[in-house]
Design a protein around this nucleic acid. Structure first.
Length: 568
RNA sequence: UGGGGGAUCGUCUAGCGGUAGGACGCCGGCCUUUGGAGCCGGCUACCUAGGUUCGAUUCCUAGUCCCCCAGCCA
């Protein structure tokens, strides 16, 4: 299926899975899993994991990848997230082929495994308080101490555990612990907690249970139950691997999955931790989980990013064990690369400046042919109305043009995209502010696009809209969520103070070509010379609303920046 | 100063004892009715010190630096 050209780059996990399969390990089967806890929305970091897990499964003959909800904590989970996660995985382009797995479906089996451990003397009920347990755990450098309840008999443990399940105790009264080694240098092995009492309704099992298994117990066993062959997780779980292996071994499951860790994705100038994302949404620092400034899949989607771009980005990233922070520019590159091929071009003026063509007949209008997508001839052409009064971008005129500024200035010529060459005659100013109010220009009738005499060359071509025909729109521009320079902030300061107060820029009174009047929410366009935009879900024909997905690369901005620098 | 991991261009990543490659970025050029796209060229890296070897980014030893772990979260 994967051709040499399109094949994804190899990485240590892909290689290991392939080697296991070739060696006939696990009977040559490849069973992966993506196991989110339904306590939040998926973000681009999850996308890396999804692409890896589903990708490896898909490229392995007979391979499968389970979608499993790791729902062992009733107090944080919600069906809203279960639905959102499924939507997002599907939107990203992956399919779990029907069955969805839930750790909560294994509660009964997990309970039985706990009984097995208790009978083997490998687990005990501890009746210390949470504080006491912490004290007994020791520190990074000091060993822990055994709980006085560690030596309870199997019968007593069995009885206590049964009564825990039966709801005879209040939250925190007892826990079930693995009996491993309180002196282990690995803190995860100092009798980790397997079950805790939580009198809380679970979104799936309701009040059937008041004891819930912990991650360290439920996860390896869920993997074993499902026949997962390779259980991928992030680096912070490396220390848990001995425990993962211990649980599976002591529970004596017929199948033994293998945990493999890799570095999670970090991106510059954004936040990815669940805690921070939750805080942004909770404190209404953003408009919701789908705020286009967020790296959530919902946010990226609303912003106009395609699943193809995200997948290409993730495939390109590679998988390794070293911590890494990927530059946002790399994501933007993949977004542009994808959008460039598929987006129809259109003209829109974000910050309008009125232009009157003095020698163009008043009341007249004509239709010009415009190419929809130079990257895709099959996209065809469209008609764009032209008239005596136009709007161009304020940035495309300078009264006193700097060096290398090729655009319009008094006495200078420029081509109007798909139209004529025009020459600026004069600029009138607002008497109060001194700002340029409108331009008077003349057009050269010989230079209409497509006409035989159009050979004349000018330095620049600019976009425009016809004043009487244009539609009004509101456009949102997005800037980095975080301030560029994080280093100046004291480490212990409230992190939200490092948020960029200008992350959302709202432009009203933008003028777009009339073909956009009927644009459907979700559709994407390239606004020529400016960037990729999509119609927001709140947009309507009466109140057009666009989101800028990503800007086009801007060579002039670089020149200008360099000029500013050299002036200093 | 316990344990577990990791160090390759500015960033991400390949390499599996034999000329350190790719991508993003940056710089320069070509082309252009998008200062877009495309094309061409360039830039910059093996944490340090020893050792083994004809040969070390790769193997060994000793350091240095970075990350993770002391939830009844996952």
């Amino acid at each position: 299926m994967t051709t040499p050209e399109s094949s994804t780059s190899s990485n240590f996990i892909r290689d290991l899975v392939a080697a296991d399969r070739a060696a006939g390990k696990h009977g040559g089967r490849v069973v992966m899993r993506f196991p989110p806890e339904p306590n939040g929305y998926l973000h681009i970091g999850h996308a890396k994991s999804i692409v890896l897990n589903f990708g490896i499964a898909h490229e392995s003959p007979g391979g499968v990848c389970h979608l499993r909800f790791d729902d062992t904590n009733p107090t944080t989970e919600d069906p809203e997230y279960v639905q959102a996660i499924q939507d997002d995985v599907r939107w990203l382009g992956f399919d779990w082929h029907g069955k969805i797995f839930y750790a909560s479906d294994y509660f009964e089996q997990l309970y039985a495994f706990a009984i097995v451990l208790i009978k083997k003397g490998k687990a005990y009920v501890d009746s210390l308080t949470a504080d006491q347990i912490r004290e007994h755990r020791g520190t990074l450098t000091e060993p822990g101490r055994d709980s006085p309840y560690r030596t309870r008999s199997a019968d007593e443990n069995l009885d206590l555990f049964a009564r825990m399940r039966a709801g005879k105790f209040s939250d925190g009264a007892h826990v079930l612990r693995a009996k491993i080694d309180m002196r282990s240098p690995n803190i995860n092995l100092r009798d980790p907690i397997l079950y805790r009492i939580r009198h809380a309704a679970h979104y799936r099992t309701g009040t059937a249970w008041c004891i819930y298994p912990s991650y360290d117990f439920a996860h390896p066993l869920s993997d074993a139950i499902e026949g997962i062959t390779h259980s991928l997780c992030t680096l912070e779980f490396e220390d848990h691997r001995p425990l993962y292996d211990w649980v599976v071994a002591e529970a004596d499951t017929p199948h033994r999955p293998q945990q493999i860790e890799f570095a999670r994705l970090n991106l510059t100038s954004t936040v990815m931790s669940k805690r921070k994302l939750l805080e942004l949404v909770g404190k209404q620092l953003v408009t919701g989980w789908d705020d286009p400034r967020l790296p959530t899949l919902k946010g990226l989607r609303r912003r106009g990013v395609t699943p193809e771009a995200i997948r290409a980005f993730c495939e390109h990233l590679g998988v390794a064990k070293r911590d890494a922070i990927v530059e946002m520019q790399l994501l933007e590159h993949f977004i542009r690369e994808d959008l460039n091929k598929r987006s129809p071009r259109v003209m829109a003026v974000l910050r309008p400046l009125k232009v009157i063509l003095d020698n163009y007949p008043e009341g007249a209008a004509e239709e010009l042919d415009a190419v929809n997508n130079p990257e895709d001839v099959s996209a065809g052409t469209r008609k764009v109305p032209f008239s005596r009064t136009l709007y161009i971008e304020q940035d495309d005129f300078r009264e006193d043009p700097p060096k290398q500024f090729y655009r319009l200035a008094p006495g200078r010529e420029v081509r109007l995209r798909y139209g004529y060459i025009i020459k600026c005659v004069s600029a009138t100013k607002d008497p109060r502010t001194g700002a340029v109010a409108e331009l008077h220009c003349t057009y050269d009738p010989e230079t209409r696009s497509g006409s035989p005499q159009e050979q004349r060359k000018v330095k620049a071509t600019i976009h425009w809209v016809s004043a009487p025909h244009a539609a009004t729109a509101t456009i949102r521009l997005y800037h980095p969520l975080l301030l560029a320079d994080q280093s100046k902030l004291p480490a212990e300061q409230d992190w939200t103070r490092s948020l960029n107060p200008q992350s959302l820029e709202l432009l009203t009174g933008c003028l777009v070509e009339p073909s956009l009047r009927s644009a459907a929410p979700g559709s994407r366009f390239q606004f020529e010379r400016q960037g990729y935009f999509c119609v927001d879900s709140d947009s309507s024909p009466k109140a057009l609303l666009f989101n800028r997905t990503v800007s086009l690369k801007d060579a002039w901005a670089k020149v200008e920046k360099a000029q500013h620098k050299s002036q200093r």
